[in-house]
Design a protein around this nucleic acid. Structure first.
Length: 506
RNA sequence: GAGGCAUUCGUCUAGUGGUUAGGACAAGGGAUUUUCAUUCCCUAAACAGGGGUUCAAUUCCCCUAUGCCUUGCCA
């Protein structure tokens, strides 16, 4: 077989917001494609007309745009293999369904959902397969005329794949190696439903991957059980020579308890499970997103990349470029990964503190405005430089810096108890005079030396002096270097805060 | 029930037929700091169990257990 250009696809179903596990799947596809100089396509698998949710497609596109994952082809970008929305490919699928029917690899079935449900109730382990298909209402048990009559009368039917019994089907998985399954345990899956004239996932998936020249199918482990069916479908179609290689990724598991990560875990534990905030059009419910929660897209990418893959070194911080260079499917782990969102927070912290003060200041500005304050970017950058290391999210900036904008109106009791001494009022009264004598608060080091020397000459207790001073400015025993604080506050505000505190604190 | 996949510190994971089984997050402790935080250092923490194979198994094989996935006219 000649070397084909790598082409992979991400094929979500527009049934709601994109789950974070889907984001990781797409990321791996992207990394794999770029690593090998190939293409990533976006295909929308909307063959279930029942579950279509408006806005989901736009959401998906916006989410990957935010994350810096670019599609080379597909919905939203175009390409030569379109349309890329399965609902727009009805006619294509019909042709291929017919091919399978003609090859005796599929058959019509008229059993109603109710009849099938009844069988499942009555017969333990019932499945539609080579053992049971002859008891069904289908083109294998009905005469050709009868079948024709029913179809022409508009009776609803489905087309099922006719699985050949008792053959070992081999799936060569890039992550798991050789997986062998006997076709006896496979059932005659529905390939096509006349009700909406659409194929099911299995058929559409194989036809599209083939037509779109997909070389590697990288998807979640939940697909592994149906991979043998897919292999068989390639065989029945006669496309085995260009069948893509499969890679089934380990699942993302709940942070605690059992099972795979779900939306509810996020609600319960307080972290997002979606890349962007999602406002459910039907219920009006709002689900939080990584973007709106203040995560940096680079942090999300980095975090997700390491959940199920690692380069085999101790390095943990990776740019997208590095990930592309280092990524390889054989370093993908086989077992499910618990979703450890605390590590995600750590990544966000790292990315935030690695940003320049100016960048972080620009993240702070809108938050500040929301609080009703404005600030010169230069001054804000200065403030940010003092508190940047303390934050995990941009929103934390306010908590760390609010006292720069709002004078304390009350004073933390614990701090007072520990740091406010009987001599504090006198100390501070005298300190005011000293501060008043300073000509420029921006001379941080110089001022500090002057004040410290003064304290030493008076033989005052430095800790009491400075901590009391801090409480009057901040309202508690916390915050960055005090001479930076008064530099930002300015002489007037500094003195007024001290004086006011002296009146209030008894 | 059936089929499949998996199993190294609490979590994400590295790793090897002979290692003090490594790193990170989280946890605990300490140092630094005029406060808080940061930073730095330290500590505790794992090869699911049982059989083989082998001089030697966490590593290879088998069994068991456990977990997960699938079992829809959803994807």
């Amino acid at each position: 077989m000649e070397e084909r250009k790598v082409r992979v696809r991400f094929a979500p179903s527009p049934t709601g917001p994109l789950h974070i596990g889907g984001v990781r799947t797409c990321l791996y596809n992207y990394l794999f494609a770029k690593k090998h100089g190939g293409d990533l396509l976006l295909r929308i698998e909307d063959t279930d007309s029942q579950r279509f949710v408006p806005g989901a497609e736009e959401y998906i596109i916006e989410a990957f745009k935010w994350l810096g994952i670019k599609f080379d082809e597909g919905v939203g970008v175009g390409g030569d293999c379109g349309p890329y929305r399965q609902s727009e490919r009805r006619d294509i699928y019909k042709k291929y369904v017919q091919q399978l029917l003609d090859a005796d690899c599929a058959y019509y079935a008229f059993d109603t959902p109710e009849e099938l449900e009844a069988k499942r109730q009555q017969i333990p382990n019932f499945q539609y397969d080579s053992h049971t298909r002859l008891s069904g209402v289908n083109s294998l048990t009905l005469s050709a005329d009868e079948v024709k009559k029913r179809i022409e009368a508009g009776e609803k039917y489905v087309v099922r794949v006719k699985i050949q019994p008792n053959e070992d089907v081999v799936v060569n998985d890039m992550v798991r190696g050789k997986v062998v399954i006997n076709s006896n345990v496979l059932d005659d899956k529905v390939l096509y439903k006349s009700a909406d004239e659409l194929p099911t996932y299995h058929l559409a998936n194989i036809v599209d991957d083939h037509l779109m020249g997909i070389t590697h199918v990288i998807r979640g482990e939940e697909w592994l059980p149906s991979a043998p069916l897919h292999v068989l479908l390639y065989r029945y179609f006669g496309w085995e020579d260009t069948m893509p290689q499969f890679a089934h990724l380990p699942l993302l598991l709940k942070p605690e308890g059992n099972g795979k990560l779900s939306k509810r875990d996020g609600d319960r534990l307080g972290f997002p499970v979606f890349p962007l905030q999602w406002n459910d059009p039907a219920t009006g419910a709002i689900s939080s997103g990584y973007r709106e929660s203040g995560y940096q897209p680079e942090a999300v990418v980095n975090f997700l990349a390491l959940l199920g893959w690692n380069p085999g070194t101790d390095q943990e911080m990776f740019s997208m470029q590095e990930l592309i260079e280092l990524f390889s499917i054989d370093r993908v782990s086989k077992s499910g990964a618990r979703f450890n969102y605390e590590k995600g927070i750590w990544f966000n912290h790292e990315y935030l503190i690695n940003k320049s003060d100016e960048e972080v200041a620009s993240l702070f500005l809108p938050i500040l405005k929301e609080k009703g304050y404005d600030c010169e970017i230069k001054r804000l950058t200065y403030i940010v430089s003092l508190i940047k290391e303390r934050i995990n999210f941009p929103a934390d900036l306010w908590e760390q810096a609010n006292f720069f904008f709002e004078a304390p109106t009350e004073y933390d009791e614990k701090s007072l108890k520990k740091r406010w001494k009987p001599e504090s009022p006198q100390y501070l009264t005298e300190l005011c005079d000293v501060l008043n004598g300073l000509d420029d608060f921006s001379k941080v080091e110089e001022n500090e030396k002057l004040v410290l020397d003064w304290v030493a000459s008076k033989e005052y207790h430095l800790g009491t002096m400075m901590n009391s001073f801090r409480i009057t400015l901040v309202g508690a025993a916390k915050g960055p270097h005090i001479f930076n604080i008064i530099d930002i506050l300015g002489k007037e505000e500094t003195l007024s805060r001290v004086r006011r505190a002296l009146e209030i604190i008894k």
